[in-house]
Amino acid sequence: MTATIQAKPASTEHISTRARVAKVFTDSGVVTWRNVMNVRRNPEWLLGATAFPIMFVLMFAYVFGGAIGGPGGDSSQYREFLIAGIFAQTVAFNSSYTVIGFASDLQKGIIDRFRSLPMSRLAVILGRTTADQVLSVVVLVVMSACGLLIGWRIRGSFLDAVLGYLMILLFAFAMSWIGAYIGLIARSVEVANSAGLIWMFPLTFVSSAFVPQESLPGVLGPIADWNPFTAAVNATRDLFNNPSPAGWPEPSGWPAENAALYAILSCVAIIAIFAPLATAQYRRVASK
């Protein structure tokens, strides 16, 4: 063989902390782009992500609404009450895309490819949870349109409305870190599929999303009161200025009276717990 061997310079052997942090952000940006592209190439995703919540809106607004929503079968106040809960539920269910996304990347060897690159580990997860927020925004636009069609209105100020949406997005972000962790523990896409969804039902139904939380029996009442999901829903409802239907008991207790504060604190706590867990699991998972 007559090859000439060139010693190629090992690029930037010593990297400053600042450059490292910058790399986390650029890498996260690249991974976010990749995940968003993945969804754009599968537009039927939007159908899957919105069909469920639209069905819920129709069921609760028109099937149960008459019974739940107060006397005389007038469910218009209930429909207005419902939408904040639907928003929060929609983005919570969205986190199952994180779960499935990770499980499928693991299965297809994409994670191995990432791990063989000199990139930030955190970026693989951050890129996924961030991409989820892009998707959440798209879904919230669709669901807002759906809400407007059935008579829901934002009755507060513009600024409060923006804060209401931000509240939902913060909650969505927290949920997708839980999703990331579950996706990285799941052993297959099939497991991820059910593991990603199953905990959604107690989370979103033992709450103030569809019924007055005061009406829940036994221990479910306090659970609903302290459920971060309830807090996110109540805070958003307050910001949209969507009252409970006339004659409903006002929720009481510290979490209800400080819904926004409690919602923010619990979201931050969830991220603080699940971000390190997910990162550690990422490190462990492929090195088996």
């Binding site: 690249v30 993945n38 190439r41 297809k108 994409i110 490819r113 690159l117 000199p118």
Partner: peptide, 25 residues
């Protein structure tokens, strides 16, 4: 290049390589 080709099916060939390049810095 692992035993099972780790290409992102939803990205184009160009996008796959572009992504890897960006992640190399």
């Amino acid at each position: 290049s692992g035993q099972y080709a780790a290409v992102d099916e939803n990205l184009t060939g160009f996008e796959n390589l572009y992504m890897v390049g960006r992640l190399y810095g």
